[in-house]
Computed example of a mutant assay.
Amino acid sequence: MIEEPLTGGNNALEVVRVGDTVRRARDAGAEFASQVLLYLESVGYPYAPRYLGIDEHGRDILTFIPGNTTDHPTQRAPGAYACGGRMLRDLHETTAGHVLAAAAECVIHGDPGPFNTVFQRGMPVAFIDWSSSRPGNRLDDLGYMAWTWCIQSQGRVPIDQQAQHLRELRDGYGDVEPEQLLGAIVRRQTSIADVEAVNASNHNLTATRRQHAEAAIAWATADRKLVYEHKALLLSALA
């Protein structure tokens, strides 16, 4: 079997393509993720790879979904933000009340950024890297998605364009109050900054991992500053 290393997702694990499948090293979230993917397949949720078991090397086997991830609005087609919002809402609605959600609202993806979304011709078609999925609060998931898809202090994206993308994503997801959504965005940004601050000072981690933490802190704090500076505009777009 020819193994082709895959890049584009937001993880540091071994991920390779073998024919029409993806082989992914298992981590702490692998068992729960496999249960989620099997359930989603059973109910026909179309926006996720199918789980096919474990290979001879102890890696998860998933169906390969052709396409690419994105990191800038110019790589996304009109309608992409609303479509992404609907994909996330469908996940939350599909898992609400299920045993996998435990006592929480639903199962959340946990990391539904554009770096963990496969796009085809600029339109999102599937979420990948489900190892962060867990029982949770749907607004936490939406806040992270809204941040990572719509808010960026880098890349020279005009703020009014960012506000429009935020509106489109929120409208695709469904009715969420503007203050609630911005609050969820800031909470996720703050959480990332706080967690990575601990990692950055942990000298038991590798130098590469600490550098990653420093970059994550800079990313989260710069984007949070942008939200604070343009809060009135963002709220107006969401109204």
Rank of each mutant, 00 (worst) to 15 (best):
G9R: 01
A33P: 06
D27W: 10
G9V: 06
D90N: 09
S34F: 03
Y47H: 15
D71R: 14
G97Q: 10
G113F: 03
M87N: 00
I65G: 09
G84N: 04
G85E: 00
F115W: 15
L52P: 03
A103H: 15
Y51W: 15
D111H: 09
A96N: 07
R121Y: 12
Y47K: 03
T70I: 14
G79E: 03
G53A: 10
G122Q: 01
V107S: 01
Q120M: 11
V18C: 13
G9C: 08
Y81M: 12
A104Y: 02
L40Q: 09
G84H: 04
G122R: 02
T63V: 09
H98L: 12
N11T: 15
L62Y: 13
D90G: 01
V107K: 00
T74Y: 11
V36K: 01
G122V: 06
E56A: 13
R76Q: 10
L62A: 09
T21V: 08
H72D: 11
Y45F: 15
D20I: 03
F64T: 05
H72V: 09
G79F: 06
N10I: 00
G67V: 03
D27P: 01
A48H: 08
Y45R: 06
A12R: 15
L40R: 08
V36G: 02
V16F: 06
L91C: 07
E105P: 04
L37A: 05
A28R: 14
A102I: 02
V16G: 02
A77I: 04
L52C: 13
G29W: 03
Y39G: 03
L40S: 11
A25E: 13
L40Y: 11
